[in-house]
């Protein structure tokens, strides 16, 4: 029988120009990996539906062990305080093979 383990799924929606910096911080704060999707939408800072490829939005999904989550969120909050537009939310998820999510990125 499959056993499921609780984990936290961190979702970030932001500009693709921030991608490298965010990946850097995932590495620093011990995420096991990340997935990036191209995204478009609209919010308080206007429409973000650029499909020309020059100025796009991304959505990043990261599963991160709960004990490493706070430091990660602090770093995101510092970016928001600087004025960057980040939409951040956390979802409770259940995963198979928790050891995969405890390992750090290579």
């Amino acid at each position: 029988m499959n056993r499921l383990y609780p984990e936290k799924l961190l979702n970030i929606i932001t500009i693709d120009a921030l991608e490298e910096k965010l990946v850097e911080s995932f590495r620093k704060y011990g995420a096991s990996g990340y997935t990036i999707l191209r995204a478009q939408g609209e919010g308080s800072s206007g429409v973000r539906s650029d499909m020309t490829g020059f100025d796009a939005n991304i959505m990043i999904k990261v599963i991160i062990p709960p004990e490493r989550l706070t430091a990660m969120l602090d770093s995101l909050e510092r970016k928001i305080n600087k004025g960057h537009h980040l939409t951040v939310f956390i979802v409770d998820v259940e995963v198979l093979s928790p050891e995969k999510f405890n390992a750090r990125m290579r």
């Binding site: 500009i15 120009a17 020059f54 100025d55």
Partner: peptide, 22 residues
């Protein structure tokens, strides 16, 4: 500019309103 500068400004001056300059 509408190709090189907007992403650079989003990164460097995030406080500015992008709908103005775009």
């Amino acid at each position: 500019s509408y190709i090189a500068v907007p992403p650079a400004m989003r990164l460097a001056i995030p406080e500015a309103n992008p709908s103005y300059y775009l």
